[in-house]
Amino acid sequence: MRSWRLFVALAAVVGLAYMAVLTGCSPAAKLVGTWEVDIPAAQEKLKGDPLALVAGPILSGLKLNLTFQGDGNCTVDGTFLGQSKTVKGSWRFVKEEGTTLLLMVKLENEASEREMKVVFVDNDHIEAIPPTGISPVGPALTFPFVRKKP
């Protein structure tokens, strides 16, 4: 009887571990979903910065969503000055450094993956650092995003 209880306990532990893997208990699992650029937060970050004179009007005409799917696919869709564009791609989690996730992202029509960092402010707010080579301003530029509720 005692060995039967041990077997049941071990089976439960193995089952829970298996379910954790299936449900994505990786640190990147919390990234899955759609994130919308947080224009008020971006404008707040630029207060007092000379770049704000140029960036302010640009930000007010920008809509941008990042969607990270659990299967490793992603979509970037946005509208700027009335022009809409959607780009599909793939992403993979590399490692976690504190509240920062290091990802590798490959967008359609690109030959190779690019490094991207995502910093979690809390469960519903992130700061995304665009993939290397994408940002015209440099690697220090971050964009605040808020989780879109279904």
Rank of each mutant, 00 (worst) to 15 (best):
L103W: 06
T34W: 08
A11W: 06
Q69N: 15
K63R: 15
R147Y: 02
T34Y: 09
V118K: 12
I39C: 03
N65L: 13
V37C: 11
P50I: 07
T132D: 04
F7T: 11
L51Q: 08
L64P: 01
V13D: 02
A9Q: 10
K95Y: 04
G98T: 05
L81A: 11
V105F: 01
F68A: 09
T34H: 02
R114D: 07
V76K: 01
V32L: 01
L10P: 00
D38E: 12
G61R: 13
E44N: 10
I58E: 11
C74Y: 11
P50Y: 07
E44Y: 06
F145A: 08
I39H: 05
W91V: 11
Q69V: 00
S26Q: 08
S3K: 09
A52N: 03
T99M: 02
F143E: 06
S112I: 03
L10K: 02
P130G: 02
A41C: 05
K85M: 10
V21H: 14
K95C: 07
Y18E: 10
G15Y: 03
T132F: 08
T132H: 14
K148M: 07
V14C: 09
R114V: 01
E44T: 15
L64Q: 09
F143R: 04
C25N: 14
A140C: 08
A28F: 01
L46P: 04
V21I: 01
E108A: 14
P136I: 02
E113W: 08
T99N: 15
R92Y: 09
T75D: 04
K117Q: 12
A29P: 02
L6G: 03
S26M: 04
L81E: 12
L46D: 15
F145S: 08
P144N: 11
M116I: 07
M1C: 01
V76Y: 09
A29Q: 15
F120I: 11
G78C: 09
E44S: 12
G98Q: 07
P27D: 00
T34I: 09
K88V: 00
W35S: 07
V137Y: 12
L16H: 01
E110C: 02
G33D: 06
V32R: 03
D71F: 08
E96K: 15
L16A: 15
V121Y: 13
P130L: 05
D49P: 01
E97M: 10
E127N: 10
G89L: 14
